[in-house]
Design a protein around this nucleic acid. Structure first.
Length: 603
RNA sequence: GCACGGUUAGCUCAGUUGGAUAGAGCGUUGGCCUCCGAAGCCAAAGGUCAUUGGUUCGAAUCCAAUACCGUGUACCA
């Protein structure tokens, strides 16, 4: 039986006869049907060979039907002859000959098959089969490429979760765009996805923010205090202070700098930062379903709830950690702490739950948070974190495994850092020198589409160079324009059609027969791969596969456009080519939508 | 030291159930508009897939060591 696809494609349960029947009566073949047919054909051939005694009965006849990388190798390729050569005690190519001879004949979708390379059997689809794809795309429209393969699966994606202590920077933006794209991809295969933002509105950093604001606030009234070590010097702190003064006047003035800012000031500052963050996310068109407050964990006693559960499992103890190996921090001292036995779950050391002042660590809150997520009944949880948080993965997964018993519930995906460039020169960023570039400034300069596309073009696992100049370029240098331009060209053709008052005739099956140039069949073949690309990108949570596919499709489209006249004098040919071109436009639009990038009709 | 990520063309990077002659853009060189948008197309040159070994019909891909780069490395978030 075929092992290709496994649960990823329509199982090849239909009989060959059924599929042949379907091809005769249905308007079109879907890619899944073709794949299923080919798997059936090969299976049937292998069975016949087994009856002939080429294989003994106990040999499992597994093989794969795959998409060849090189277009010269046909539409599908089968590796059966190579995988089974040993069992058959035949050289791969000889076995391939026998398989080929045993393939059932007379079906309509496959034009020809041939042996190539070390023993691949390549299948070339008929032009008719490829053309029918236009019907699929016409019928499914913006649904083309979407599926229900993971229908009903409930997934939560937590991403961004930038601290509300300042404006978002480029790294946050990358995480935001990446998370958003993963959500869209999962939705495209039928998952029910919830987007969540975890607000770190408790803890020391918020107090530092409050204190920094308070100092700037007093400056507005003529009171100068030096900014203490560790406080935030950025200009935005002054903006918050001004807003505080404008909203609440002088009521927070004090003769001396208090050790802690009043809670109202802290809350005001946090609220202000959150407002900026929401605005920035909106600018990038990234919505959230839930904004989850860390503070609520403390207030509702959920941290105790989580710790009690760990205690009941005997996973908490009072202890002293060994000093870390390698470079020792200057102020390291042995101190007894309340520790969680994360080493039992694969972590390197046990982790502290309470600080020396008795308050809970960030980790303790994170345990409670993730327990809460687990209790909300998701099938899986995905966190998108910056690479600098990589060290926390094991401990959070340990805690979740301890509490939920589900080891694979949480998947953490790290997004590497972003380096900012302008015309090839690195843009040095320093908070102190005031040369820090915020996400908002970049989005406003180059536009949300360019920012999104660039961030999605690179796999999240490698660091990314973002060049402001390139992102704005309106040439081939800029991939987002290249793709959008292809889409705009499609609509430009439709506008020209209208201007010349030519009829927009729907292409008949006979019209489509005129599509037989190599460039046309290649374009069709490329279009047929789109649903598989979406599926793969979603399953692997690797959005970059979509931009790369779109670049390939756009390139093929531009080549076609340059080589052939779409608005031909011959109305039949014109109708056929327009149908193909519209299908391209549809798929480009679908792909861009999946990335949250606009598909403009005019540029 | 340890953990995680990375190393593919001059530059920036794609390349996952292991697959055929390893790809794209930029840059370089040379071509294509009396014609639907040249914001485009075509062609050429450019490679020890960091190194070494292993697994097998087959390795950039899997495994093991090594080298170099990045991030993190008690109580911060």
């Amino acid at each position: 039986m075929p092992t290709s696809g496994k649960d990823r494609y329509t199982p090849a349960t239909q009989s060959i006869a059924y599929l042949q029947q379907a091809s005769r009566y249905a308007l079109f073949w879907t890619v899944d049907m073709v794949r299923a047919l080919i798997e059936q054909l090969v299976s049937s051939a292998l069975q016949q060979l087994q009856e002939q005694g080429i294989f003994s009965a106990e040999h499992s006849l597994s093989f794969q039907v795959e998409r060849p990388r090189d277009k010269n190798h046909g539409d599908f390729a089968c590796n059966a002859a190579m995988v089974l050569a040993k069992s058959a005690r035949l050289p791969p190519r000889q076995l391939a000959e026998k398989i080929l001879a045993a393939l059932p004949v007379g079906q309509t979708a496959v034009e020809r098959c041939e042996i190539a390379g070390p023993g691949f059997i390549n299948f070339y689809l008929t032009a008719q089969t490829l053309r029918s794809l236009i019907r699929t795309i016409e019928q499914q429209g913006e649904q083309f490429g979407r599926s229900q393969m993971a229908a009903g699966r409930r997934i939560q994606v937590e991403f961004v979760s930038a601290n509300p202590t300042g404006p978002m920077h480029l790294g946050h933006g990358r995480g935001a765009v990446n998370g958003d794209a993963i959500v869209r991809l999962l939705q495209a295969i039928g998952c029910v996805v919830e987007r969540e933002y975890y607000i770190n509105d408790a803890g020391a950093q918020t107090l530092v923010l409050g204190r920094s604001v308070l100092i700037r606030y007093h400056e507005l009234f003529g009171q100068q205090w030096p900014m203490p070590e560790g406080c935030y010097p950025g200009d935005y702190v002054r903006d918050i202070a001004i807003a505080l003064r404008d909203a609440q006047g002088a009521r927070w003035l004090t003769p001396d700098l208090p050790a802690e800012a009043p809670p109202e000031v802290v809350d005001f500052a946090i609220a202000r930062c959150l407002e900026w963050i929401r605005d920035d996310l909106q600018l990038l068109n990234i919505p959230f379903d839930t904004w989850f407050s860390e503070r609520s964990l403390h207030q509702e006693g959920l941290i105790q709830h989580a710790i009690i559960q760990l205690e009941e499992k005997g996973l908490i103890y009072e202890g002293v950690l060994q000093p870390p190996k390698g470079k020792l921090p200057d102020d390291w001292e042995a101190r007894p702490q309340r520790l969680f036995r994360s080493t039992l779950f694969g972590d390197e050391v046990d982790r502290a739950l309470q600080k020396s002042d008795g308050s809970y660590t960030y980790f303790a809150a994170d345990i409670a948070y993730h327990l809460h997520k687990a209790e909300r009944g998701f099938d899986s949880l995905i966190n998108i974190w910056g690479a600098d948080h990589g060290g926390y993965i094991k401990r959070v997964q340990s805690a979740l495994a301890a509490l939920s018993g589900r080891k694979d519930l949480l998947e953490v995906r790290l997004v590497q850092m972003v380096n900012l460039f302008r015309a090839g020169q690195p843009v040095r960023m320093s908070k102190r020198a005031g040369t820090f570039v915020t996400l908002r400034e970049v989005v406003e300069e180059v536009g949300a589409d360019a920012v999104r596309f660039w961030f999605l073009l690179r796999s999240s696992g490698s660091s990314l160079d973002f060049d402001l100049e390139l992102a704005m370029a309106k040439t081939n240098d800029n991939p987002v324009f290249y793709v959008q331009y292809a889409h705009a060209r499609v609509h430009s053709l439709l506008r020209r059609l209208h201007e010349r008052e030519l009829p927009d005739i729907p292409a008949s099956d006979q019209h489509l027969q005129l599509l037989c140039a190599e460039a046309e069949l290649e374009l069709l073949s490329l279009l047929s791969r789109y649903p598989e690309v979406v599926e793969q990108a979603a399953l692997e949570k690797e959005p970059q596969k979509i931009p790369y596919y779109l670049l390939e499709l756009a390139a093929a489209f531009h080549t076609y456009y340059n080589g052939y006249k779409i608005l031909d004098e011959d109305p039949d040919l014109r109708a056929a080519r327009l149908a193909l071109v519209k299908a391209c436009g549809q798929v480009i639009a679908n792909g861009l939508t999946l990335l949250g990038v606009n598909a403009p009709e005019q540029m």
